[in-house]
Nucleic acid binder design. Sequence first.
RNA 1: GAGGUUGUAGCUCAGUCGGUAGAGCAACGGACUUUUAAUCCGUAGGUCCUGGGUUCGAGUCCCAGCAACCUCACCA
Length: 540
Amino acid sequence: MTAVEHRRLMSQPSPANPKPDQPGVHESARRDKLRKIIRMGIDPWGSRFDQRTHIGDIRARAGEIKFRSEAGQYLEIPDVDGQPDLDFRQWLQQQGPGQLEGPAVRAAGRIVLQRKAGKLRFVDIQDWTGKIQLFIGKQQVGDADFELAENFDLGDIVGVDGQLWRTKTGELTILAEKLHFFCKSIEPPPEKHHGLQDPELRQRMRYLDLTYSDGVLQRFLQRTRIVQSIRQTLAQAGFCEIEGPTLHTIAGGAAARPFLTHHNALDMPLFMRIALELHLKRLLVGGIERVYELGRVYRNEGISPRHNPEFTMLEVYQAFGNYETMMDLTERIITDAIDAIGGGYQLPYGDQQIDFTPPFARKTYDQLFQESTGVAPDDHVGVREYAQRLGLEIANRHPDVIKNEVFEHQVEDRLQGPVFVIDYPASICPLTKRKADQPQIAERFELFIHGMEIANAYTELNDPDLQEELFKTQLDGMPEEDSMARMDHDFIRALRHGMPPAGGLGIGIDRLVMLLTNSPTIRDVILFPLMRPESSSAKS
RNA sequence: GAGGUUGUAGCUCAGUCGGUAGAGCAACGGACUUUUAAUCCGUAGGUCCUGGGUUCGAGUCCCAGCAACCUCACCA
């Protein structure tokens, strides 16, 4: 980046305050209430609140609510939530005089819905485990707290001490005895029936999407569980997590264009990493026999429903393993992750169903090629003609590269899977060891699910001379940005010191999460996907 | 990078043939101590994405730009 570009970037107006002009009706109404709360002697920005129970746990105690008759006898109440036809109001009348008694509870959450009925207010609050209704009666909480409740707005964060209880309609409710106030929301929330619909706003204002869109918070919590499960599976298998550098002097390990950045003090260009591979293999050389990194990589490529410029990648290396070791591990990582989020191995994806029951199918590259195209994979002329019919670029290209173009166009999209595609042509896999008895075949697999490449694994090449030669061949044949790898002399030097034979595996975490959470785009599983800045001409 | 679609109140959306800018939710005032998207009466709220053009007159038609989404390409 030039100094001029840098200054331009730094001087861009912040989008945080797009409307410095007069506050609108909503903001002034909310600021009025804010002032009233302060006048009541209450800190509108709250403080520590101990001994609170999560709403989900409170709801689980519904069974403890009893009916206490005037004679002092306790009576079980019917399962209101389990019987939608039950008229709870009628049931209460039949019991004669008495009242409901439930456990004392303390909750806090954001106000997502309010209903006012004279000297009575119903307020639905929500925390990250669920939602519950508060019954706030002037008589029950007293004048001061009721005045506080009159200054509640949708979006405020409040707390309550009260009794777990049911209203006459049977709704599980906290009968408020004491109110607390934690935060005033100055901005109004989205529309209460539809929430945020505009995908642009949902991504820019993810905090609103998380709070007000059904299933969004759950989906991101599931992502966390999946990642935790992966770490746990690898830890149990004896793998060691490390953190490699994200700033590289050579962007290697994958075929992708890197982001370029600059170190000022060293006055040196740097690349954001495009893969984890080469540093992890250096650690195999260093004796870390089972090693992995689960972290962000950056690729300066296009954006699509399946691509974000930064995404999360898992790479695993196991000394004395091979690609078959990695296949078993991949299956375990994925099935453990599914166990971690529950719901079984039949997962819906869009209008389809994906069966993750292990073992996943294993088919050779050539076998799938033949099945799908009807052309013999070693028939160079036939493959070339087939590629021509598809309109693919074939001039001056290696027969295996042409074959792979055909494979990517005709086979990959149709692999509903999960299916391990195994035994790739060696010429398109420069970092892969060949089969001992079939040197034209690389010991590699890719896992396809729903037409998406989810995992990629090799028996790693540890012959330094062959590795260097293959790097060179790759670099010779193509313009630099097309090449499968860039020459990394230090990596070759590491190999010359001796790397044990090993299996290596890469898994695209975002795509795996997409499949396991039934998310149609990668942006649905990335909290803050890359977006252009909001300009002054943009809406909102 | 190419093509298509969309952009109107805080949010969700209408807006006919080019002729005074609309609704619901949210907000404000009022009624209501068992509401469930509470209800009822009343009030306020607009850079129609931005900039040009055509026209007596543009939310609407034309051109350019911005942003998002979809498809394709690069890529995983």
